[in-house]
Amino acid sequence: MNIFRLAGDMTHLLSILVLLLKIYATKSCSGVSRKTQELYAIVFLARYLDLFTDFISVYNTFMKIVFIASSLAIVWCIRVHPMVKRSYDKDLDTFRHYLLVAASFLLALFLHEKFTFLEIFWAFSIYLEAVAILPQLVLLQRSGNVDNLTGQYVFFLGAYRGLYILNWIYRYLTEPRFTRWIACVSGVVQTALYADFFYYYFISWKNNSKLKLPA
């Protein structure tokens, strides 16, 4: 474990807490893409299939359970909770996210570290996570002004994988045989997708103005 990866995991956890706070405090999921939340639930379920078979550390197991439980809880909230469900705008959240699932799974069938069930689902979860934010970014562009908590949620979610890139550079430099090409390349693509969001987020922070993504 290094500082970059710990900071990355904490930033990821923070993004989830901010989203839970937004939904709990406002009893609303306006501006939040249910499809991105569903994609993240699939990412965690596919990536942590080894939750009960491979024990890495208490921290690792604990965080996996937190990520799986929180992502399922958020999807449940948006789909089932009467107050929150009413605020979900399905006319804005129209990204065909099942195409992302299909494309990621197809790619995982061809590009993986080993042709085993766990490795293919792991690669699938890595590719799917890289594009999981797309429905959310499209929704933000459509819904005009973005409330603070939703903006902070997306910012932290994008920042965490950026910190992981620093972690991979650090591990590549310090560990003799460390190579994680699938995770690295996917992580760079994932972080790059946030580029324009980061730019407008920085502008809104600098000008102390409302975050607004151009349509």
Binding site: D50, D54, I56, K114, N167, R177, R180
Partner: peptide, 10 residues
């Protein structure tokens, strides 16, 4: 050899 490395990251 890559796959031998434990998936120790989240």
């Amino acid at each position: 050899p890559e796959a031998e490395q434990a998936k120790d990251e989240l």
